[in-house]
Nucleic acid binder design. Structure first.
Length: 430
DNA sequence: TCTGGGGTCCTAGGACCC
DNA sequence: TCTGGGGTCCTAGGACCC
């Protein structure tokens, strides 16, 4: 196939109903049954099998609102098992890496592949091969969209998921004349980059589909949807504005927040919960070899409860910048003293770290004993390694609490860590 | 009486993504 | 009774400077 200069071919590979499909891989009995995976604290639906979608369970719908459907329809409900999903994701990505020289892991369940440098003649055939390999290696079903821009690949994928005749693969490249026909069927809300607000705005002007949108004047788009909208529109027209980003970028902020299983009143319990969250965030920080220069802590009452709400936050500038859990935990009590009020009960809390610097490039000033701080770093990395490889979370600071108390999230329906824990391997009865 | 204008930096908040 | 969590980027507006 001959391609014009500067043309691109992107494939978007996306796992169908990822978390729900992961649960199915290890439990053949729930194939063809409605499956729903719940968010942390068993709060709301974050993944639904096709059967569950048909029952009308919406993304993000609170569990209590559709709980009455569970028994009559025999819905299989699971607490989120992110360790399992993370491991399954890695297996999918390893498989995809065999099919393209450039790949961008875009989220836990999707990746962009760059295909234009490959000697491929029929993209539909190639994509079908990808589909089959992922299925064979991981047991997970995917959809694949192929197009000349990332935004169009996303659009193609949308149809791959919904039109059974396409068998999960939609190709906008081989015959570009089909594209407009699809875009006329694509509601603006389903365009990558057009969210709730912009969709409502566009609908007010009678712009209902991607095809309507791509015909609009650049100036109007720029004035009303900013440069972001303009980029989206150009991509819909086939001008590639977004490239593959292969390098795994370091996070600029790291957050660790939770809703509690029960509401908390006491200072000590809040301190314990926040200490646990700080430890998680600090571990992520060290995981990407950063030190943080600013830590913000917040607490909040239950926003869904009627009556007076309380939310308060405070932060600390860290000088020198640090990745030492002990240092960060030391500030926790001081900050909490600033923002805690005994007059409220608390349902949510969290920590947000920012102002990062690369661990290896950081220079201490003369006032600090860099050698001592480096020795602390070594200690932390030994603890991290132990917790990561030997026994997850076994070494921790006393301030986090010895047992998980009232505040810890509810997770009453969790599946096993089939792939990452020897004690939870799949067992087969014969 | 007449009271400029442009640049930069920072931050909070909005919108979007999965 | 019961409502998730973790990110990114852009913009507007204020402070400040010359």
């Amino acid at each position: 196939m001959n391609l014009p200069e500067n043309s691109h071919i992107f494939a978007l590979v996306d796992c169908n109903n990822f978390y729900a499909s992961c649960e199915r891989v290890f439990n053949p009995q729930i194939h063809n049954k409605p499956v729903v995976v719940l968010s942390n604290n068993d709060g709301c639906a974050i993944a639904r099998s096709a059967e569950a979608k048909i029952l009308g369970i919406k993304m993000g719908a609170p569990y209590f609102e559709w709980q009455h459907l569970v028994k009559p329809h025999n819905i299989r409900v699971y607490s989120a098992n992110f360790v399992l999903y993370g491991d399954m994701s890695a297996r999918v990505m390893r498989t995809l890496e065999m099919f393209a020289p450039e790949i961008e892991i875009y989220s836990i369940d999707e990746a962009f592949l760059k295909l234009d440098t490959l000697p491929v003649h029929d993209f539909k055939v190639y994509a079908t091969e990808i589909y089959q390999q992922v299925k064979q290696q991981t047991g997970l079903p995917v959809s694949i969209g192929i197009a000349s821009t990332k935004t169009l690949a996303k659009a193609a994928n949308y149809f791959g998921k919904r039109v059974p005749e396409l068998k999960g693969v939609t190709d906008f490249v081989t015959d570009p004349s089909v594209v407009d026909g699809f875009l006329k069927q694509l509601p603006v809300r389903e365009i990558w980059g057009i969210g709730q607000k912009r969709a409502e705005f566009l609908q007010k002007y009678g712009i209902l589909t991607a095809y309507d949108l791509k015909g609009l004047d650049d100036k109007w788009i720029d004035d009303n949807l900013t440069i972001m909208g303009l980029r989206t529109v150009w991509e819909l027209r086939g001008t590639s504005c977004l490239q593959i980003e292969e390098d795994e970028k370091k996070r600029q902020t790291i957050a660790s927040t939770r809703s509690f299983g029960k509401e908390i009143k006491s200072f000590d319990e809040l301190l314990e919960a926040l200490s646990y969250l700080i430890s998680i965030a600090a571990q992520k920080l060290r995981g990407q070899s950063s030190k943080t220069g600013y830590m913000q802590v917040f607490v909040a009452s239950n926003p869904f409860k009627k009556g007076l709400q309380y939310r308060n936050a405070a932060g600390v500038v860290l000088d020198p910048k640090t990745d030492d859990s002990a240092v960060l935990l030391g500030y926790c009590r001081k900050i909490l003293e600033q923002i805690y009020s005994p007059d409220f009960t608390y349902k949510r809390a969290g920590v947000i770290m920012s102002e990062f610097v690369n661990h290896d490039e950081y220079q201490y000033d003369l006032c600090h004993d860099g050698g001592a701080l480096d020795r602390r770093s070594s200690l932390m990395s030994i603890i991290d390694r132990y917790n990561r490889t030997v026994n997850s979370g076994e070494i921790k600071f006393a301030q986090e609490g010895v047992r998980r108390q009232n505040w810890f999230m509810n997770q009453n329906k969790k599946s096993s860590r089939y792939t990452t824990n020897w004690n939870e391997l799949l067992t087969i009865k014969i």
